[in-house]
Amino acid sequence: MKKGVSFLVAVALMALASSLAAAFDPSPLQDTCVAIPEPENAVFVNGKFCKNPNLTVAEDFFFQGLNIPGNTANRVGSNVTTVNVDAIPGLNTLGISLVRIDYAPYGQNPPHTHPRATEILTVLEGTLLVGFVTSNPQNRLFSKVLNKGDVFVFPIGLIHFQFNIGHTNAVAIAGLNSQNPGVITIADAVFGSNPPINPDFLARAFQLDKKVVEYLQARF
């Protein structure tokens, strides 16, 4: 009997550990937890200090300017306007954020991942080629051409991308199920790390000449 109880306790603990490891933004335990930078008269919740609920105002839940196009005059031809907890303090503990993505003609949002969120994207203007790649060993590519009004989902943690294949500017809006989803742009992380990753290692990993790796590192 004791062995049976011990086994059930072990299973329960393993299930609890598994659920904690899989969790990301936790459910809030109060109506609002407006994020503030200073700890005075505040409570620390989920990485932010919470404003006294009696002092919150409508502006804590407001963001203005998502209608303004982002500047796409850069090396990738796109711009991401992020509306997360840093832009709207009232998003704190609510587990959601939003981005506007502007693309110049043939601009791209390069391969990247969001370590803490699934993304759902809808095209407002233009035509995008989008896709994501599943994990090893399959590495399956799921890709689709999206037009105005089309929607596509990028699962949490998977490498994905968007490419404006049209002759005009394109605009998309995306929702993410985290107040701070994070972003890891693959090329920037690999070739632009600080300090740099050893080029001999990268040359072997990517099956490239070392000089090509050093060139890429200099670019990033």
Rank of each mutant, 00 (worst) to 15 (best):
P69I: 07
N71P: 01
N71Y: 03
T72F: 00
T72I: 07
R75Q: 14
G77W: 01
N79F: 14
V83I: 15
V83E: 10
N84K: 05
N84M: 02
V85R: 05
A87K: 15
A87P: 02
G90F: 13
L91H: 03
N92E: 02
N92I: 08
V99I: 15
V99C: 05
D102I: 02
A104D: 09
Y106V: 02
Y106M: 14
N109A: 13
R116H: 14
V123D: 10
L124I: 14
G126V: 12
F132V: 06
V133G: 00
N136Q: 12
L141I: 15
K144M: 12
L146V: 11
F152S: 11
I156W: 00
G157F: 07
L158T: 15
F161C: 06
F161G: 01
F163K: 11
F163V: 13
N164K: 08
N164Y: 07
I165F: 07
G166D: 12
G166W: 11
T168Y: 07
N169P: 01
A170P: 06
I173Q: 05
G175R: 06
L176R: 12
S178V: 08
S178M: 07
Q179A: 15
Q179I: 03
Q179V: 06
N180V: 12
N180P: 02
P181S: 10
P181M: 06
V183A: 15
T185Q: 15
T185R: 11
A187E: 13
A189R: 03
S193Y: 08
N194E: 13
